[in-house]
Design a binder for these strands. Structure first.
Lengths: 124, 124
DNA sequence: AAATTACTTAGAGTGGTCTCTAACGGTGTC
DNA sequence: GACACCGTTAGAGACCACTCTAAGTAATTT
């Protein structure tokens, strides 16, 4: 069992952010103790980690909520969820590809600065 | 010579965005024609493309402005600019690395959904 | 001459993701 | 009992990067 601050530390977010996610419907699975405080099980922690993975790869909160809602709904939504993840996987591949292209441009720029240093004159 | 809309089309942004960038100090090098309209040279286009490259890889507008200001300042800022780009290059490498890690997690999830389909029962 | 098109400006509004504040409640230790 | 500490809520505010509006100018087409 984990407190909100423990989960926050593990997932590298603030407790504020987790409460914000809860308010946005991303954490409907989280239970409470007698005092009304959020209590995260090991399984909850795993889901939060996955939510952070989706967030870190640019999935909007709305779509993450949709995914969570489907997960809560039950087994019969598994196909839809699989499709969401494979679709998002493609998007992540696209992001990686774009970043790699940009990296090439940055490398060229650095190469220019280096060539400039040794006397080559060109445009910047 | 290019109009704002031509540059917008080439760089896959809107003219609105280019004017916004201008207002933010990202395009101080762009000239005007007799009518007061922005006119982009081939060299300007190259710089806008590079600005978009920086933006697409997550460099904040403030930092891009700093880079542009240095470039305008002259040759003696070349070292600083080189450092900015190599620093940003590292950041892009970090982004790619993180995306690849996230991709692995997504792959595992897809694999789970597939194993689930053929009868394996586990956590979701 | 009127309409259309392309551009201009200042400035307001939007959307997303936090981020923080204020006021409060319950638990543990001295 | 007092205080620290961890948690709660509603809601305001911040920040970024646009995105759009309103009102206007200038050139071109019909």
């Amino acid at each position: 069992m984990y407190s909100i601050n423990e989960v926050a530390a593990i997932c590298d977010v603030t407790a504020h952010t987790l409460r914000f996610y809860d308010k946005e419907g991303l954490l409907p699975f989280v239970g409470r103790n007698e005092a009304g405080n959020r209590v995260f099980t090991e399984r909850d922690l795993g889901l939060v980690k996955f939510i952070c993975c989706l967030k870190n790869t640019g999935m909007p909160i709305k779509e993450i909520r949709k995914y969570i809602e489907l997960a809560i709904e039950g087994e019969h939504t598994a196909d839809t969820r699989r499709d969401m993840i494979t679709g998002h996987r493609k998007e992540v591949l696209r992001q990686i590809d774009e970043l790699k292209k940009s990296l090439t441009i940055l490398d060229l720029k650095v190469a220019f600065y280096d060539s400039y240093k040794v006397g080559f004159q060109g445009e910047h």
